[in-house]
């Protein structure tokens, strides 16, 4: 861990100002990923702007009937929030599928978007990594890449985005609210994270100094027909090998609206609108689901150790859509019918 100073901001403007006046500084919310990476010498900010006194912890309705999550609301408070549970259970499920109770108590909703990849090579400063050190090379290509991307990767980087929450946010079409040196703006969720291309060092489209202040969920929550299916190497407290957020709106057996996003397959939450279009207006049958699944992996590319993900993604999509359509839940989830 490098040498750094710390200051605590009490208002958003102060935080933004503090960040811009300190070169090589970083915001720290929950700290669960930043401190982890600082101990690995991967992140080396010389100043930390502490956010935990900012008044951004509330979860409240928006005028258009949606819900606003304060950027500093914890993942736990969000997942267990009554409004989130009843209106956006997909989001609640996705959050509870990630990390551990302790981490969810610390991690913030804004910080969740800022999580960096779990790529082994990114984490190990003894190996080259274009994301960590642009131009040094991608060790994962030709290396041990079982946990790596099959969609949207580049020759510079095949890392995946590690979040569960973000997969649900992508499916729900959330909006990211940010404040920066040049004022406030909103970013559509699908435009927030980036594909690696030739600049894998950039995970997202935030401008320098910008701070996430909140997330807006639109009114539509797909609370009846949804599934967050997470496949991983152990039952809990593990990152996804593949995850699928599926949300459907049904009239009888006909799908009237559909959302489909995948985790563990790309550098960003992978939403496929073309696949969604293949679902809309169709009967909720296995055939329909298979067509959508095939569409998602159409351009997929496997590497030495992760080609299995192409087939697995297809099967996971079909399963998730089936569960969503039936209104049943992810089988492994223990919380759905246990609201005391």
């Amino acid at each position: 861990m490098n040498s750094f100073t710390y200051s605590r901001a009490t208002a958003v403007e102060d935080a933004v100002r503090e960040k811009s006046t300190h070169p090589d500084s970083a915001y720290i919310g929950g700290g669960t990923n930043l401190l982890d990476l600082m101990k690995e010498n991967v992140e080396r900010p010389v100043h930390l702007v502490g956010l935990n006194k900012l008044p951004l912890t509330t979860i409240e309705p928006t005028p258009d009937g949606g819900l606003r999550l304060g950027a500093l609301a914890t993942n736990a408070d969000t997942a267990w929030n009554e409004e989130v549970k009843s209106r956006y259970p997909l989001l609640s499920q996705a959050i509870l599928a990630g990390a551990s109770p302790q981490l969810r108590n610390m991690a913030t909703d804004g910080g969740n978007l800022m999580q960096r990849t779990r790529c082994y090579y990114f984490y190990d400063t003894a190996t080259p990594c274009n994301k960590r050190e642009p131009g040094s090379g991608c060790s994962a290509i030709g290396g041990y890449n079982r946990i790596h991307a099959i969609l949207g990767a580049s020759e510079q980087c095949i890392a995946t985005h590690p979040s569960d929450m973000c997969i649900a946010l992508a499916a729900l079409e959330a909006t990211v609210r940010v404040s920066g040196p040049n004022g406030d703006r909103t970013i559509a969720f699908e435009d927030f994270h980036r594909l690696p291309g030739n600049t894998p060092e950039r995970d997202n489209n935030l401008e320098p100094g910008e701070l996430i202040t909140g997330l807006d969920l639109p009114a539509k929550g797909f609370e009846k027909n949804f599934t967050y299916l997470k496949l991983r190497d152990r039952t809990s407290y593990a990152f996804a090998v593949i995850s699928v957020a599926a949300a459907l709106e049904l009239e009888g057996d006909t799908i009237t609206d559909a959302r489909l996003a995948l985790g563990g397959v790309a550098h960003k939450p992978w939403r496929d609108k073309e696949a969604e279009n293949l679902l809309k207006g169709q009967p909720a049958t296995a055939d329909t689901f298979r067509r959508a699944a095939a569409k998602v992996v159409e351009g997929a590319h496997g590497y030495e150790h992760n080609t299995f993900k192409i087939e697995l993604a297809k099967r996971a999509i079909v399963r998730a859509l089936k569960q969503a359509a039936e209104g049943t839940q992810q089988a492994s989830d223990v919380f759905l019918n246990s609201n005391p």
């Binding site: 710390y6 720290i28 929950g30 700290g31 669960t32 401190l35 982890d36 930390l48 736990a76 551990s100 109770p101 302790q102 981490l103 108590n105 610390m106």
Partner: peptide
């Protein structure tokens, strides 16, 4: 609330 004390300053 339970937290991991290693990941907070």
């Amino acid at each position: 609330k339970r937290i991991n004390s290693c990941l907070t300053l």
